[in-house]
Nucleic acid binder design. Structure first.
Lengths: 252, 252
DNA sequence: CTTGCGGTTGACGTAACGTCAAGCCGTACC
DNA sequence: GGTACGGCTTGACGTTACGTCAACCGCAAG
């Protein structure tokens, strides 16, 4: 049976001798014989095994997983499906990351009156870029840019009063919640109507029912938002969301 | 000036004490003082610096790059733009990888007469999935699936003769090349016409000029394809590509 | 006998910490 | 006064898949 030396194998497959020795060390591919001063020799079976290893490695699988596959301990199709899922997750993560980075660059190059400062006032300054990215995903670039324009067009004094206005709305809501008013009661819906009008002003356009509900979902689903609201009164995020959903369903 | 202990900082920022010590070790964030038995104390400046570090880390930047930024040695916007490019490259890499993995799964679950075996006959078996993925990117899912159907519909004998047919075409071309025929000469174009007809048969549809040129580009641009053709005669890939481009320009 | 070729075995480095293990300081308790 | 304990410290190793030296070894040619 023909055998091949290390150098021959490297020429045939493109891997380095160091890699071959590494594969030997971790037990994934051992030479068929080691004669004449430690020189490795690989046979046909080893070459075929190496081809399979390299194929799976090109797919991005880890060596320990590859070891299980070529040893027959793990069905290849199963491993690949799991790997495909992981790749998808990683792609989504990178997508979100790229959005956030892009938003951060825009903030760095833009001026101080960027949208997120008003939309997401009170949040950690460092997270604003993340929320701008989130907003662009949820409502689209056009909506965010329109809001930017609208806020920029407001008189200075009014713009600076935005956080206070939110604060007022939240306190009114908290009081009603304290009083035991249901979220769909007329009193709460009146405050929510004010909230809706204020959001419409900031967005530069009146949100659709879907968009408004999406905002409501953001308030409860995002930990930072939920924490901000719950700092005013416990459960306020959920309460506000319920009120907003009711408003979207009944009045939009 | 107020200072904070390790535990307080971990509560405020969510990082572990180990991380803080790591940041100290690599010199990216040093405590303002280390008194009373080595206990670390961080001041306001350090907290702000840490916030910035964590923000940049959320964006996926590496610590050595972050160090340059917070030390003012590297403009943040520049670093982020470069980072955004790297993210894009990584996303594309993952996209290609996911395509290849998906193609491999299809091959594992499909039967033995999959398209790539005929399209890419003679290539390393392990690379066929990559080429199926490449083909789906270049010509779309519909085209590859149509080809699959067409090849499957061929009589068994004919299907098995596909590699031989390619081989014949390649040898005829090599002979003409040897004889010094220009790629746009009538003799070469006649062979290319046969090639085109054969490809059309395999694809189940006649390729457009663009698709045929794309195939020609694949022959020369891909190392494995180029090597396959150049094994028949040196420079055959380039020669065939020139002939195909001429054919696409003149006859399609 | 020396040089050179072709290969070998360690051993360290990579990124960003997690995870022990061992030890030290101050305080409360006995 | 000893001691147990909490809070924190400094090493040091492990993680992934090798790259990159450094030191060495067997064999053949000059």
């Amino acid at each position: 049976m023909r055998t091949w030396t290390t150098t021959e194998v490297t020429r045939l497959t493109g891997v380095t001798s160091r890699t071959l020795r590494h594969y030997d060390a971790i037990g994934i591919l051992e030479p068929v014989a080691t004669g004449h001063g430690g020189l490795r020799r690989y046979g046909e079976a080893e070459l075929l095994r190496l081809q399979r290893i390299l194929l799976l490695k090109r797919l991005g699988l880890r060596l320990d997983v590859i070891a299980e596959i070529v040893d027959g301990a793990l069905p290849e199709a199963d491993a690949l499906k799991r790997h495909a899922e992981q790749l998808d997750e990683e792609r989504e993560r990178l997508d979100r990351l790229a959005d956030t980075v892009a938003a951060t660059i825009r903030q760095l190059e833009g001026d101080q009156t960027m949208t997120p400062e008003t939309w997401f006032d009170g949040l950690d300054a460092g997270k604003q870029a993340e929320y701008e990215a989130e907003a662009r995903r949820r409502w689209g670039d056009a909506a965010v840019d329109a809001s930017d324009t609208a806020v920029r067009a407001m008189p200075e004094a009014e713009r600076r009063a935005i956080p206070a206005k939110f604060d007022e709305l939240h306190r009114r809501l908290a009081a009603l919640k304290e009083a035991g008013e249901p979220a769909d009661s007329a009193a709460v819906q009146a405050v929510v109507a004010d909230h809706y009008a204020f959001i419409a002003k900031l967005w530069g356009t009146a949100p659709t029912a879907e968009a408004y509900s999406g905002l409501a979902a953001l308030y409860t689903d995002d930990p930072a938002f939920a924490a901000t609201y719950d700092a005013v009164a416990e459960g306020l995020a959920t309460y506000l969301r319920a009120g907003m959903d009711a408003y979207a369903a009944a009045s939009l």
